[in-house]
């Protein structure tokens, strides 16, 4: 996640000091990883250099926090472009599970116990997330839990699908490389 885009997004609401940006970010996104002050100040410096934000006043706070920034027109354009661009679609990182299944079969072992144990671990995590979701007080927390839940659900479907193809897969791994 880009600190730059987060700060542009928050600054569009109103001009802010670094401290206000940190407070606003943490209040809005308590479930996301917090931003450090040093990260915020260095990013604001870079955005200022690139003309995406501008210094509007130098009073009020202390130290580096004396500076209050506002978004420039270029900053708004940059933010709009980022918001309209879909994130790159990569393959999900399930390489390790596939590799464990493949190497188990290659060595003549069963992959069933691994897939069962993985299913159990996924289910346990899904129950934890569902508990978190049903106790959530904000729609943002619910949607964030659901993001993880839908991804884990997709993993489970792959696990079940693979269990049903294990015999064919084992036969393939027991033969010579084609």
């Amino acid at each position: 996640m880009s600190t730059q885009q987060i700060l542009l997004g928050l600054l569009e609401q109103a001009p802010c000091h670094g401290y206000d940006l940190k407070r606003e970010y943490e209040a809005r996104f308590p479930d996301l990883r917090p931003l450090r002050f040093s990260q915020i100040y260095s990013t604001l410096g870079r955005l200022d250099r690139d003309g995406l934000v501008t210094l509007v006043s130098e009073g009020g706070g202390q130290g580096p926090d004396k500076k209050q920034y506002a978004l420039t027109d270029s900053g708004v354009s940059e933010l709009e472009e980022w918001l309209a661009t879909p994130i790159p679609v990569g393959d999900p990182p399930q390489g390790e599970l596939f590799l464990k299944v493949a190497l188990a079969l290659l060595s003549g072992r069963s992959a069933r116990p691994l897939l069962k144990a993985q299913r159990s671990a996924h289910q346990a995590r899904m129950r934890e997330l569902t508990k978190e979701k049903t106790g959530a007080t904000s729609e943002a927390s619910i949607v964030l839990c659901d993001y993880s839940l839908f991804h884990l659900d997709a993993d489970l479907r792959w696990i079940d699908h693979t269990v049903r193809r294990l015999d064919k897969l084992a036969a393939e791994f027991s033969g010579p490389v084609r």
Partner: peptide, 23 residues
């Protein structure tokens, strides 16, 4: 649906008529 099952305290998983033992 695994998402629905996650609302329960625990799951019993069935395959081909039998209950799969817990790992």
């Amino acid at each position: 649906e695994a998402r629905a099952a996650a609302y329960a305290d625990r799951s019993i998983y069935m395959l081909d008529g039998a209950v799969e033992p817990e790992p």
